[in-house]
Computed example of a mutant assay.
Amino acid sequence: MTDRPSRARAVPTVVPAQIGRRVGAYAIDLGIALAIPVLFSLIGWVVVLASGSGGARGGLPIALLVCYGVGSLVSVAWLLVYTAMQGGRGSIGQRARGLMLADAATGTRIGFGRALLRNVVWALAASIIVGYFTPLFDSSARRQGWHDKATRTVVGDRKATDAAASVAPAPPPPAANPFLPPPAGAPATPVTAVAPSAPARTAGFAPPASAAAPAPTPALPIAGGLISQVPGVSAPSAAASEVRAPAPSSATPAPAPAPAAAPASDDIDATRAGRSSEPALLAAAWDDGTRFAVYGRTLFGRNPAAEDGATAVAVRDETLSLSKTHFELDGDATGAWVIDRHSTNGTVLLRDGERTTVEPGARTALRAGDHLEFGDRSLTIGGGA
Score class of each variant (00 low, 15 high):
R201H: 10
P236S: 08
L299I: 11
A312L: 07
A219N: 01
P216A: 07
P279N: 01
H326S: 09
P199A: 06
P279T: 02
P196D: 03
A240N: 13
Y295V: 12
A284K: 00
L329Y: 07
L320D: 15
A336W: 07
P253D: 05
F292W: 10
A203G: 02
T334Y: 07
E242N: 06
L320K: 13
G232S: 05
Q229S: 15
P231Y: 11
G274F: 01
D317W: 06
P190T: 08
V313D: 06
A193C: 06
A206T: 13
A256K: 08
P279Q: 02
V315E: 09
A306P: 09
T271P: 00
P253T: 03
S250R: 10
R297T: 15
S228I: 01
D308I: 12
W286N: 14
P259E: 03
A305L: 10
D288I: 13
R316Q: 13
A261F: 00
P255E: 15
P304R: 01
A261V: 02
P259S: 13
S234M: 03
P190V: 09
E328I: 07
A203Q: 01
F300Y: 15
V315K: 09
A239F: 02
L322F: 05
A193D: 12
W286C: 07
G301I: 11
A283V: 01
A258G: 10
L322W: 03
A258M: 07
P304I: 03
L322A: 08
R291Q: 15
D332K: 04
A209L: 08
S249R: 08
P248M: 11
F292D: 07
P231D: 15
G296N: 11
H326Q: 11
E242Q: 12
P279F: 00
R272V: 02
S228Y: 03
A203F: 03
A219G: 00
E307T: 11
G331H: 09
A247M: 08
F300K: 14
H326P: 05
P259V: 01
A223M: 10
R272Q: 04
R316C: 10
P255Q: 13
A312W: 03
P304Y: 00
A306W: 02
N303Q: 15
F327T: 10
E307Q: 14
V230H: 13
S321V: 06
P231M: 15
A212W: 02
A262I: 02
F205P: 09
A235Q: 04
A280E: 07
T252C: 06
A200Q: 05
A238H: 00
A198G: 11
G204Q: 02
G309H: 13
S234I: 02
A200F: 01
P279V: 00
E328R: 13
S210T: 05
A239S: 11
I268L: 00
S234L: 04
L322T: 04
V194A: 14
R291E: 14
P208M: 07
T217I: 11
G224T: 09
L281V: 14
D267S: 11
L282M: 13
P248Q: 13
A193H: 12
A223W: 08
E278I: 10
A293E: 09
E307S: 14
D288Q: 14
A285L: 03
G274N: 04
P253N: 03
A310Q: 15
I222Q: 06
A209R: 05
E318S: 15
S277Y: 01
P231W: 09
D330Y: 05
F205S: 14
T202P: 07
A310T: 15
S250F: 08
S249L: 05
S276C: 01
L329C: 03
V194I: 14
T290P: 09
Q229N: 11
S277V: 06
